[in-house]
């Protein structure tokens, strides 16, 4: 059996959970096994809750769902989640445990792995279960945030603990949909109370509306922008397009923009309809964050720049002239 750990935030299933199920369906088929799913913690009273998550898990191919609860699981906590996953794994003896390689997903599978004294392979893009006589799993996983791939093997006496790299698959429900929701079984894990020490203490909401990871348009600026003030025309264009401004690591290192605007391996992964990358050379560090964009338009004085070569469209020229001209042209067409 393949056990998929469903990432949810206080009772609301996220895209990471659906991706894990979609990726897991293919893996379970290769294993010749059933896919089951586990929901850790009941979530907030106002949220849809475990039963709604179970139904959605069924739509995405899980044939049985376990709801795992304990007083400590009032909110997310990496140690409490990891201990829960380890205990459920001990109880159900799955052949493999899979979560999505999101920030939380990688963290809780690592917490479970060390408790089971088992290896864990993070951010796989393709997984092959052991063949007839071979005891090894083999997989392709990402290094350098996706700039490099690693063929790896996993040998383990117990279950394989795995995560699939974020956005390796687009989530999709099974077709045709199942005729009934999957059976749900409650498991009480009776966690040690001290694991509450790493449970979320409070939450602060900073902004509503379009955020960088979800913006339909991102106007990015790099070293070529030259200064903090130089971003004003990029802000203007982003506002006209209902998008957000992003930047490269060189920009945050110079203190021109906050790190929360940084697109890249150590910043935000964006996935807009179009990324307008201006004055950005396109180093690996930045490209990894930008490569999820559906389309890229580069503005650069250097026609050989990596970003220009990888873009769908490019304008060769000085961004300080080109970006304001684009805003002016939009205004002209609107008037």
């Amino acid at each position: 059996m393949l056990l998929v750990v469903l990432e949810h935030d206080r009772g609301t299933l996220g895209e990471a959970g659906r991706e894990a199920l979609t990726f897991g369906r293919t893996l379970a088929a290769k294993m010749g096994a059933e896919m089951h799913a586990a929901v850790i913690g009941a979530g907030a009273p106002e949220a849809a809750g475990p039963d709604a998550i179970a139904a959605e898990a069924g739509d995405h191919g899980a044939v049985r769902v376990y709801t795992v609860d304990d007083g400590v699981l009032s909110d997310f906590g990496p140690e409490a989640w990891g201990e829960s996953i380890a205990r459920v794994t001990g109880l159900l003896a799955p052949d493999a445990v899979l979560a999505c390689g999101s920030e939380r997903g990688n963290e809780v599978i690592a917490q479970a792995a060390v408790r089971l004294d088992a290896p864990m392979v993070a951010n796989c893009t393709d997984i092959t279960p052991p063949g007839g006589d071979g005891a090894e799993w083999s997989m392709i996983r990402v290094q350098w945030g996706g700039s490099l791939l690693e063929d790896a093997t996993l040998s383990t006496a117990g279950p394989a603990l795995l995560t699939c790299a974020l956005h390796t698959v687009a989530s999709s429900p099974v077709k045709p949909p199942p005729s009934a929701p999957p059976p749900v079984e409650a498991i009480d894990v009776d966690l040690p109370p001290e694991l509450a020490r790493t449970v979320v203490k409070e939450r602060v909401v900073l902004e509503a509306g379009v955020t960088l990871p979800t913006a339909p348009v991102v106007v990015g600026g790099g070293r070529g922008v030259g200064s903090a003030e130089g971003f004003a025309p990029l802000e203007e264009l982003a506002e006209l397009l209902g998008g957000r401004v992003g930047c490269s690591r060189a920009v945050t290192n110079n203190g021109w923009r906050p790190h929360s605007d940084q697109v890249g391996q150590t910043g935000t992964r964006i996935a807009p309809e179009i990324y307008i990358a201006s004055g950005i050379s396109g180093a690996i560090q930045h490209w990894v964050g930008a490569m999820g964009s559906k389309h890229i338009l580069a503005v650069n004085i250097d026609p050989e720049a990596n970003m220009v070569v990888k873009a769908d469209w490019a304008v060769i020229g000085d961004l300080h002239q080109v970006i304001p001209a684009i805003s002016a042209e939009i205004r002209r067409r609107w008037s």
Binding site: W313, A325, I326
Partner: peptide, 16 residues
């Protein structure tokens, strides 16, 4: 295959 829309601000209409 990168399509070059033009050079400098004159490329703005093609971008839009």
């Amino acid at each position: 295959q990168t399509t070059i829309l033009g050079h400098g601000p004159e490329a703005a209409p093609a971008v839009v």
